[in-house]
Design a protein around this nucleic acid. Structure first.
Lengths: 140, 140
DNA sequence: GACAAATGATACAAGTATGGTATCATTTCT
DNA sequence: AGAAATGATACCATACTTGTATCATTTGTC
């Protein structure tokens, strides 16, 4: 059970790298060379982040990707939700089918509490905070 | 990203049902009928729990499964670890390969903190607590 | 002892998610 | 015109989840 999968991890690395450069617009070629991730997969990830308004893209020669927001405004939760789907730890596996009293389910309540905590913690992590602390080139 | 998968869920239902019966030994046939889960899959799950010492089994006519521990001593973490593997939210995806300073990685530290909280919360959940609260027949 | 009822062991398979590749179209700079 | 970049999209390999199927073994009852 992983909180963060590889596409989110790659996204963090890429965004983190971009945020540390003088030039705003960074090409996929440069990213691939610097953060060592598979090129076609990274392109797919960056295109998704572009559509979601986290990156802006520039086509043509000299083009590439730039941050659409300040690094301190890009939250880890945004990346996880965009690339892995909604953060939802408490999905009841039997829905309305059998469960006679879903509202008072003890397990569900417990997991909802856990989920709220996890989300609040992840929200406190931004690209800015990751770039400034710990390992700068690879956020493992 | 799910904290609890279906096999753990089935295990919870089965153990919870067994804990509420007068008779100690319950057959798979009875469980299948009462908690409505696929028979061969449930058998596989119960066999695993038997090997792990959470259940004891009795072969032959009139046989079945009984709890090997008191309901308040069977923790949700035991079931998750047995059926889904170690609870490990913080797996670094790049290991030693590239990361220059894994010890000080800000993201890793954050996720370790979250993991400790999640595990401590799950440890507070037992078969006993699930049987006594909320929906009794189906722990959704 | 025969038979039925139960679990033990194990191999197989469908469905889904993750991680990744390949290709062609489009835009833009020079 | 041509090169360099992204956009869109189809495809593929692998692993994990969620099962199914089958035969062997044990045990209680007649």
């Amino acid at each position: 059970m992983r909180l963060i999968t590889r596409n989110t991890d790659y996204a963090v690395r890429a965004l983190s790298y971009i945020s540390r450069q003088e030039e705003k617009v960074i090409s996929v070629s440069e990213l691939v060379e610097k953060i060592k991730v598979p090129r076609p997969f990274l392109r797919k990830i960056l295109q998704i982040l572009n559509k979601k308004g986290i990156l802006v893209s520039y086509k043509g020669q000299g083009g590439g990707f730039a941050l659409a927001k300040k690094p301190q405004e890009i939250f880890l939760t945004d990346l996880i939700e965009t690339l892995q789907g909604e953060i939802k730890l408490n999905e009841c596996l039997f829905k309305k089918m059998f469960c006679p009293d879903i509202k008072n389910c003890g397990l569900k309540k417990k997991i909802e509490t856990i989920e709220r905590y996890v989300v609040s913690q992840l929200k406190s992590i931004t690209i800015a905070s990751l770039s400034n602390n710990g390992c700068k080139t690879h956020n493992c």
